[in-house]
Every structure is written in structure tokens, then in C-alpha cells.
Design a protein around this nucleic acid. Structure first.
Lengths: 349, 349
DNA sequence: GTTAGCACTCAACGAAAGTGAGTGCTAACA
DNA sequence: TGTTAGCACTCACTTTCGTTGAGTGCTAAC
């Protein structure tokens, strides 16, 4: 059944009041504060309908109504207006992101702080990752006698390195020649190309350095497959600013869930890779994670150079200023893309 | 005034009971549960003395006593017995740390999780840093036309890299020769050695690549001076397990403080560099940070290869099992040192 | 279809009384 | 002189119970 325009207006008024006050809203208040030209009694009737249809809930008989998850969903999909950030908000965001970043981990952790400061909710930022990487470069450097540094660069721009112990009699030139040989053999390959046959050839060609090569190749493979996704959470304690988390048990449940990176990372992976929509919103139990049943999750996907992907988002109470959060995430998202582009590919656009 | 043996025994009993129960302890309970051979009335008299001397506090007239900060301090300095971890505890710690780590950031964040799981308190781990580093190696790699990767290794074993854009006409061999030249000029220097005179010489020798060199040298300097300390916090929500943080305002104050890496890092820097004692303990307001006045901080210093230093520690309520925390930190500390040694210097011991 | 009126519901607040763990003091005891 | 039993007193905490007030649902009139 379609909602009448009047019902929509009332539903919207209720939700927006509730988002602001966190108090169940009563018919009288709607009649007074919103110019709907209706009396409290009429609104009461409509509210009863809306409740019956599932858009509203009642905490108890003598309280006002609060939006149900279905109500929020309808609001987000059909009623909500876009929020335009003010000039001040934009300026403040821009300036907080306008600085030099040196390491990927720093960017990601700082962005999560920025998001949580901007929205007043806990923020999540995923480290960018490639779906399938190819090896762009592998190089070994002799750091000191007996110690070699392996540096791997993938075509997504990810750089990783690892120290390795070698027997003392390998010198600078040997390292260089192995380095060059391996580079020639492996550059351009992705993880699937590391077939036993191909590896066998390499080992045979350089039989005297078998152990050495094995370590290097394992590390290269590790970089190409790249383990689990990593996330940063910023401003987790912001959740305590919301009255729905005055209850210490709820707060504890939420915070101990979010304290674990694995939990958060797994939750994000349930969202899919966002090919359908740039921003995905999970309201309450739409999110399959039971600990999150009282919260909403708003997540945007970013991608850098078409190769690297990741997610940024926030978690807040279901009663959340969705419009504002979405606008902030969009702006931060585009800045982040730019920063990462500059950083990883060294481009100045 | 010296405390009599009997007063010490009573003080110890009170503190240990309070650590366990978090309830003010009364004279009757001490008489019953601890075999001191004294009646409640006698203990009452002694408790009155201890209170007058400042070792105990009274929340209100009709409650039992709780230790004052001075009481805890005396306990930690003079009364506390060493706690021996059980075989199970040791085995479980060892096994949770016994895996391969690839990146420094991963080690540090995982260690913070391990500490917080082992102690049930929020844990802090600082990234290892060198006090003064010398450059061990700088190398440039041409990744693709127009994009160069700079890799810097310091004598402390820290490796960092950064992408840099270059004009397209610089090829592989040019990069290599600049790389070799710079390496020869800069290897072995520390930040203070980068005098204007020396830099001038370098710029003059390679005048045609001025901008290029400038970027590289700036990055090297950045690596040698190395910015601010970075910390990881794990298991922050553990603090909510303690009854003293049932109060939502206290919880909020604590968690929002600890949510900020700068706050935590600054707090650690107030501790000095631990040359005096391997473990430092700050009880309540001994810690100058006002938000931490209700908590205690236990911090151990670690060092790797004599070059890299850092701190690990926990924050808990003043009513904390100090002995157990200290033993756990010591064990984790030694494992961490070993892991980092292997990782950074590629040594297998 | 809309609205005024009214009885009804129920969480929240607050005062009052009861409960009990614990103290401090006194007087008797070893 | 140090220790202990006894007892009056204190005070947070809990429970009870009435009050308040925001809000609903229903009915009847407009």
C-alpha cells in the first residue's frame, strides 16, 4: 500500500524530530512544531495507521512513537533531502586533510580521526587493497654483511619490504645479479602465474641460492595475495555521546565488538564491493552482525587509479543524521582518493 | 613513622581484598578471612591509625576502608609479592605470539591486542624508534616511466619508502648513478650532519637534478629525525569491565582521552625514557594527566639491538592486580624484543 | 474527514521507611 | 597496657508507594 502524502509528511516530521531529540515524539509536538495544518488528534490517527503499517514503534503505551527500522529505511530511500555542507564545514574538512602524508598507515589512521571528528560518530577506514596485483618490481639491497632487504612493488603501487638473513659470503654483486635475474623472471606475473613448473626453472637456473630464492619468492607471493584486509577505527568513544548508549552494557557490547579489527573487517566484507551503489547503508538488523543490531552503518567505497579499493564509513545509532553523514563521507572520500593517488603513484595531477 | 609489622599485614590484607572485590573492606571481613589472630575490634583500631597516617580512605562513615594512593604506592613498593605466571598462562602467551609477522605496524597492533587479552586491561604499545639514527642506505628505483621509488634504511633498521614523480626523460641508468652518488655522499650521516655547506656541494655536483635531489634529501632527513612517536591502543573497551567505570561519564572521559593517539603518546613521553627502572608505575594522580587521575599506568621499556626503543604498558583502575600485570608485561616484553630483533635485523639468534 | 474532550496508561520522579554493613567508643578482661 | 565484647550510631542502598505528566485511544460533535 502506498503512503499518502500526508502520512509521508507526518512520518518525516516524526523521524526528523526523533533524530534531533532522541525522545519518543508525540502527536501534540508534531502538531505544534510542524506546520501541517492538522490537529494533534488527526495526527494521532495517522500515527496509529503508520504504526500498524510497520513504520513506527511504540516503546510503551503512554509514550510517543519512534521510527521502526522500516521507517528509517523508507526515510533514507524516499523522504530524506540531500544535505549541503556549509562553507565552514567544507573549509574545515579541507584544511584538516590538507597536509603532507608520508606513510599509508598514517593516512588511513588520520582519515579515520578526521571522519569521526566531522561526524561525531566512530569511523572506519580500510587500507586500500588491490583485487589482483601483478608484480611491477622486486629488488634486493645488501644492507650490511649478512643482511639483505627485499623490496616489492606491485602494479597497484603497494610497496612492502622485509629483511632477510643471508650467509655472510654473498656480496654486493651477487645480490645485484640475483636481483636482476629474479626481476626479469617474475615482473608482470600475478599470484596465479607462480606455477610449480615455472618455479622449478628458476630454482634450477640458480640452484646454489635455493633457500635464498625461496624466501624471496614466498615474500613476493605474500605481497601479491596480500592477506586479510586491515582497518582502522577512529573515535570509537564518540558512540558514548549518544543517549542510546548511556546504558553501560550496550556501550560495552558495542565497544568490545569494535575494538577488534577482525570483527570490523569482517563486517565490512559482508557489504560486498559496492558495485551497485557508491554508498551503502545498513540500518539496525539489516546488518547481519548481531552486536550491531542497534546501530546503523554508512559506508562509501573508494578506489584509487582503478586498481586499489577500500571502504570508509561510520557507525552510529539508527537515529542518525543520515543526510549529513552521507555528504561528509562523500567529500572526505574524494579528498582521500586524491591524497592516495598522489602518494602511491607520486602523481601531482 | 615506620609501620609496625601488624599494620603492614593489615594494610596488605585490605588492599588485596579490595583489589579482588572492588568493595570497601570492613574490619570484620579482615578478621574472618585472614588468619591474623586478631579480633575485628583490634583491626578497627589499627585501621583508624592507618587512615590517620594516610594509607587508607573512607568513602563515608558507615562503609569499610579503601586504599589511598599512598596506600597503593606503599603496597607496590614494599608489600607486593612477585606473581609467577602459571604454566598455562605462559604457554598461552607464548603461543599467541608465536607466529610470523611481516610489517612493523602489524606486530605492534597485534602485541597490543595480546597484552590487553592477557591482562584484561587496555594496552598501549609504542612503535620502536631510534634516538639518533644514521643513514645506512638510500636507494632509488625506477618503477615506471616518470615514477621513482626512494627507499631509505637507517642504522636502527627502520625502512621507509616514498614515491616521487620525475620528468619522463630520466632513465634507468641516470637514476642508478644518482642513487649511487647520493649513497656515497650520505651514508653514515645523522640528521645533524646535513649542514648547508655539505648540501651545497651535493647540489653543485649534480646541478641538473636539483629538484630531484632536494626531494630525496628531504625524505632522508625526515626518516632520520622521524617525527612524532606513534602508539597503538588495544582493548580500550576492557576498561568497562571494571566496576569503577560503570559510571558512564567516567567511561566517556577515559575512552575519549585514550581514543586520541596524541594524548596517549604525550602521556608516555612524560614518563621519561626509563633508564632508572625497567618498569614504571604511575598510580592515580602521580600521573600528571588529569583524565587519568582514577587510573594507574604500568609501563615497561623495551629496546631492540640497543638502538631502537619503545614502551609497552597497560592502563587500569588504581585497584589493579599490579603483580600479575607486571609479570605479564615482562614476559611479553622479552618476546617482543626477540620478534623485533628477528624482523628488523633479519637475525635468527 | 476533522477535531475537542475525556478516561486511561505508565514511566519517571521523589519522599518516606526499612535494612544492614560498618564504625567509634566504652568498659571489662588478661 | 594491649585486646576484645558490646552497643549506639551513621549512612548508603533498597523498597514501597503515591504523585505527576506526557501521551494515547476512543467517542461524540462539528
Amino acid at each position: 500500500m502506498e503512503l499518502s502524502e500526508r502520512k509521508k509528511a507526518i512520518l518525516q516530521a516524526i523521524i526528523e524530530d526523533y533524530i534531533q531529540t532522541a525522545e519518543p515524539v508525540g502527536s501534540r509536538n508534531i502538531a505544534k512544531n510542524h506546520d501541517l495544518g492538522l490537529s494533534a488528534a488527526t495526527i494521532r490517527n495517522e500515527m496509529a495507521d503508520l504504526e500498524e503499517m510497520g513504520y513506527l514503534d511504540k516503546p510503551h503505551t503512554s509514550a510517543g512513537r519512534i521510527p521502526s527500522e522500516m521507517g528509517y529505511r523508507f526515510y533514507v530511500d524516499s523522504l530524506m533531502h540531500r544535505y549541503s555542507l556549509t562553507m565552514e564545514e567544507i573549509a574545515s574538512l579541507q584544511s584538516s586533510m590538507d597536509r603532507k602524508y608520508s606513510q599509508l598507515e598514517n593516512v588511513v589512521s588520520e582519515i579515520s580521526d578526521i571522519i569521526s571528528k566531522a561526524t561525531n560518530y566512530p569511523a572506519i577506514v580500510e587500507l586500500p587493497m588491490a583485487q589482483t596485483s601483478r608484480l611491477r618490481s622486486v629488488k634486493m639491497m645488501l644492507i650490511e654483511q649478512g643482511s639483505v632487504l627485499i623490496v616489492v612493488v606491485t602494479d597497484a603501487g603497494v610497496v612492502r619490504n622485509r629483511h632477510m638473513k643471508v650467509s655472510g659470503d654473498i656480496d654486493y654483486e651477487v645480490i645485484d645479479s640475483i636481483s636482476e635475474f629474479l626481476s626479469g623472471q617474475l615482473t608482470g606475473l600475478c599470484a596465479d602465474d607462480f606455477t610449480p613448473a615455472r618455479l622449478m626453472l628458476i630454482y634450477e637456473a640458480m640452484a646454489s641460492y635455493g633457500d635464498f630464492l625461496k624466501t624471496v619468492i614466498e615474500f613476493v607471493l605474500e605481497c601479491l595475495t596480500n592477506g586479510q584486509r586491515r582497518v582502522y577505527v577512529g573515535g570509537a568513544s564518540n558512540i558514548l555521546k549518544n543517549p542510546e548508549f548511556e546504558n553501560i552494557d550496550r556501550a560495552r557490547e558495542f565497544l568490545s565488538f569494535i575494538d577488534s579489527r577482525e570483527n570490523v573487517s569482517q563486517m565490512l566484507s559482508l557489504l560486498g564491493n559496492g558495485e551497485d551503489a557508491p554508498i551503502s547503508i545498513k540500518i539496525g538488523s539489516e546488518n547481519a552482525v548481531p552486536e550491531m543490531r542497534d546501530t546503523s552503518l554508512v559506508v562509501a567505497n573508494y578506489s584509487v587509479g582503478g586498481k586499489l579499493h577500500g571502504k570508509i564509513g561510520i557507525i552510529g545509532p539508527k537515529r542518525m543524521n543520515y543526510a549529513r553523514v552521507i555528504s561528509s563521507l562523500e567529500l572526505i572520500n574524494s579528498n582521500l582518493t586524491e591524497i592516495l593517488g598522489r602518494m602511491i603513484y607520486g602523481k601531482d595531477e
